[in-house]
């Protein structure tokens, strides 16, 4: 078994909405008025092995994008440790920290918003490797051409601007930009969600080809279970800031353990299910500002018992390589 390339230990991210002056005055007489804290990510521990694709699934507001951004080093964390190849990223000297930052790259959801509209392709792809000394000014043209070819774009497009490309081509540009600094680890945040089905298939195939060619490791964040099932080796399911279940893709999809995972999988529309009767999960996704006590899922869970309302379930081993956070796994 290969060593983890990335380990997360108790990662948390709190967003605090502090009180303004008027609210502070009101708070003097009304102690109920307090700062609002959103625990976007709440004590997440995960690992990703070398050359593995880990799918991170959850619905809107569950903190999956926040977690992705923490891993990519874009967002500071509130607590916990991130270890890259065994090294705590908080205790690196400047040059090591820069290396880690380059090795972990991010691909964003919106190919329209993540490219500077006033830069040419040549500069979008070539700026970072040139700055970091990966190529010299002499070699940059060939280097950019190589990157564009790798993602399936014609190198003659290098003088163009982003608006001259279609959505799928822009996403390829975003991938070329990420690859240009020779990363080992890609965080893909809903990277195919904005694309049409036929284009989505092209980009998914590209991700798989690049993994073969370059030995990349992926954290693939998505709400689309079909896509995640197709691409991932392992899957982690997130609900309101916490991981509720992880496991190898085929086992998890075959026998989901956590009631939320079960509900999520049952809700996915599938091509081979016709004229089905949709059986909905009850209730709304609660506000992360005021999550339910105990297990976050208990108000919507059909199997909830008294303990679920009081005590937060811990993520424990339920089978080799599989973890789940549910009280129902105890005792019985």
């Amino acid at each position: 078994m290969t060593a983890p390339i990335l380990e997360l230990d108790g990662i948390s991210k709190r967003f605090v909405k502090s009180l303004d002056l008027a609210e502070k005055l009101v708070a003097l007489v009304n102690p109920k008025l307090r700062e609002q804290v959103v625990r976007a990510v709440d004590g997440v521990s995960l690992h990703v092995r070398e050359r593995e694709v880990l799918g991170l699934v959850g619905e809107s507001g569950c903190g999956k994008s926040t977690l992705g951004r923490i891993i990519a080093g874009i967002l500071p964390k509130s607590a916990g440790t991130v270890r890259y190849r065994g090294n705590d990223v908080d205790h690196l000297d400047a040059s090591q920290a820069r290396d880690v930052a380059l090795k972990v790259q991010m691909i964003f959801q919106d190919p329209y918003a993540s490219l500077n509209p006033r830069m040419r392709v040549q500069d979008i792809v070539g700026e970072a490797p040139l700055y970091h000394g990966i190529v010299t000014t002499d070699g940059i043209d060939d280097y950019v051409a190589e990157m564009l070819l790798r993602v399936g774009l014609d190198p003659s497009y290098r003088r163009r601007y982003p608006h001259q490309f279609s959505g799928g081509q822009r996403q390829r540009l975003g991938i070329a930009r990420a690859l240009a600094v020779r990363p080992d680890f890609l965080v893909c945040d809903e990277a195919v969600a904005a694309l049409d089905v036929s284009i989505q298939a092209q980009v998914l195939n590209l991700f798989m080809k690049l993994r073969e060619e370059l030995g990349l490791t992926y954290l693939f964040i998505s709400h689309d279970l079909g896509v995640v099932q197709h691409l991932s080796d392992r899957v982690a399911i997130m609900y309101l800031g916490r991981i509720v279940e992880t496991g190898p893709t085929s086992e998890l999809f075959e026998k989901p353990n956590h009631p939320y995972t079960q509900a999520l999988l049952a809700g996915v529309p599938r091509l081979d299910q016709r004229h089905r009767r949709f059986e909905p999960v009850k209730g709304e996704i609660p506000s992360p500002l005021d999550p339910p006590h105990g297990c976050h899922f208990h108000p919507r869970c059909p199997h909830a018992i008294a303990r679920c309302r009081a005590e937060q379930p811990r993520l424990v081993d339920i089978a080799p390589g599989r973890l789940a956070a549910c009280h129902l796994n105890d005792g019985s």
Partner: peptide
Amino acid sequence: DVTIQGQILY
């Protein structure tokens, strides 16, 4: 979201 979509389709 998937669970909400299921509710609406239902």
